[in-house]
Design a protein around this nucleic acid. Structure first.
Lengths: 145, 145
DNA sequence: CCTACGATCTGTAGCCGCTACAGATGCAAG
DNA sequence: CTTGCATCTGTAGCGGCTACAGATCGTAGG
């Protein structure tokens, strides 16, 4: 019986479609060492296995959660060395969570400042603009924190 | 009477201290054309005026609001051409506000996902980890959107 | 006036995480 | 066999700085 696609493996394009990670990015991940070098066809094209697919999906999910590559690398090396302790993983996740919350707080402040500025503005063809005036004002040493 | 510091102008270091923008960044802004080339001393050191100070403060405030340099450039060219219409400024601010809100929403989702993951985790020396399991799971095609 | 030392100078390379080429091949369908 | 897409390698670019190296400027103390 003719086996399914997974028997001969995936081309890089197939892997890309299956994971949603662009071809160039897959090669990039190989170059920076978070994806292992796959086998090759006689002609030199990459051939991936289902293991590659799982790993790349993992990476994609982590990226979607905002993990920097360095942290993904750390997670993967724990997985690779079969030395996953829940505590370490928890620490990485918690750290990332703190990062995200910090950025959230920053953005919330921006949102407040920008919407206040937008509200100030007459919006018409008026040649003067309170926004510009505010931003250029000497007396405001910083933002309305 | 001996004039104040502003008479001879500011050195790049003084401007940096006055605005909170690093020296290298000031030179970078000059290179990319959002800060004008200042005068020079006989020996070739940059000499800034109070106008430079105001402009750089404006840039810094805009950056702190998350405006990309391209938008700051647009704002500055309106100012430079003395053709500031409030409507255009409003459009740029509103656009930036929308960007910020989009990023806020993204981050809020990340926050939710990460805190759910962190809560799942046993946190101890347990050699298995539900987080890793989840992220590696085949059946999860994407994130719990 | 000289010396010493910090500030500033120019130019270039690196950071992250891709993305976009160019120009040469591989591979599969008709 | 040809066509034409997919893939190959290698390199350069994006934004927005940041960090050097190695030379020169400027100023305060002796």
């Amino acid at each position: 019986m003719a086996p399914l696609t997974s028997a001969r493996g995936y081309s890089i394009g197939a892997l890309s479609r299956a994971t949603g990670v662009k071809v160039e990015t897959i090669r990039y991940y190989e170059r920076i060492g978070i994806m292992p070098e796959p086998g090759r066809t006689a002609g030199g094209n990459r051939q991936y296995t289902h293991e590659h697919l799982k790993r790349l999906s993992f990476i994609r999910r982590c990226r979607a959660l905002g993990f920097p590559v360095a942290e993904i690398r750390a997670l993967l090396s724990m997985v690779d060395s079969r030395d996953v302790t829940c505590g370490e993983v928890h620490a990485i996740v918690t750290h990332q969570l703190a990062e995200v919350r910090r950025r959230l707080a920053d953005l919330a402040r921006l949102e407040a400042d920008l919407s206040a500025m937008a509200a100030q503005c007459a919006q018409g063809d008026v040649p003067a603009c309170p926004i510009i005036d505010t931003l250029f004002d000497d007396d405001a040493p910083s933002l309305p924190a």
